[in-house]
Simulated scan of single mutants.
Amino acid sequence: MKKTTRNLSLMLALTVAGCLGVFAASAEIGKAAPDFTLTDIQGKSISLSDYRGKTVVLEWVNPECPFVVKHYESGNIPSLQKNAAAEDVVWITINSARPGAQGDYDASQVAAWSQKNGAAPASYCRDSDGKVGRLYGAKTTPHMYVISADGTLAYDGAIDSIRSAKQADIAKATNYVTAALDALTAGKPVEKSTSEPYGCGVKY
Rank of each mutant, 00 (worst) to 15 (best):
K172R: 14
T178Q: 15
V132R: 05
P66G: 12
L80M: 13
A122D: 06
D127C: 06
A17N: 07
I94Y: 00
T55F: 10
T55M: 13
I77Q: 04
G21D: 13
A158L: 14
A165D: 13
A112F: 00
I162D: 10
K139H: 04
V89G: 02
S26R: 13
T4C: 10
P66V: 14
V110F: 12
G151S: 00
R126C: 12
G137Q: 00
R6K: 08
K44C: 07
D129K: 12
I162T: 09
I162N: 09
Q167C: 05
P99L: 08
M144S: 06
N76G: 02
K188F: 07
V61L: 11
I77V: 15
A27C: 04
A27L: 03
K192M: 12
I92C: 03
R52K: 15
K2H: 10
E64W: 11
K192W: 06
F36L: 00
S9V: 15
K131V: 01
Q109E: 13
A97F: 09
Y72L: 06
V89I: 15
H71W: 04
C19M: 12
Q167F: 08
L20E: 13
D127L: 07
E28T: 14
Y105S: 01
D160P: 11
R134P: 00
S108I: 10
A149F: 01
A122E: 04
Y198F: 15
V61F: 09
E191R: 08
E87D: 12
A171D: 10
M144T: 05
V22C: 14
F23Y: 11
L12H: 05
T185E: 14
Y204F: 05
Y145N: 03
S96G: 12
V16M: 08
Y145Q: 04
P189A: 04
D150Q: 02
R98M: 11
A122T: 14
A17R: 09
A97P: 10
G75H: 00
G130E: 03
L10E: 09
Y176Q: 02
Y72S: 01
K70D: 06
Y136L: 02
Y145W: 06
D129F: 05
Q115N: 02
G53L: 08
Q115A: 11
A179F: 06
T55E: 13
S161W: 10
Y176G: 02
R163G: 12
V57S: 04
V68S: 11
A86E: 07
A119R: 04
D106I: 04
S164L: 08
V132L: 07
K82V: 07
K44P: 03
G18S: 14
S45E: 15
A86M: 03
A138L: 01
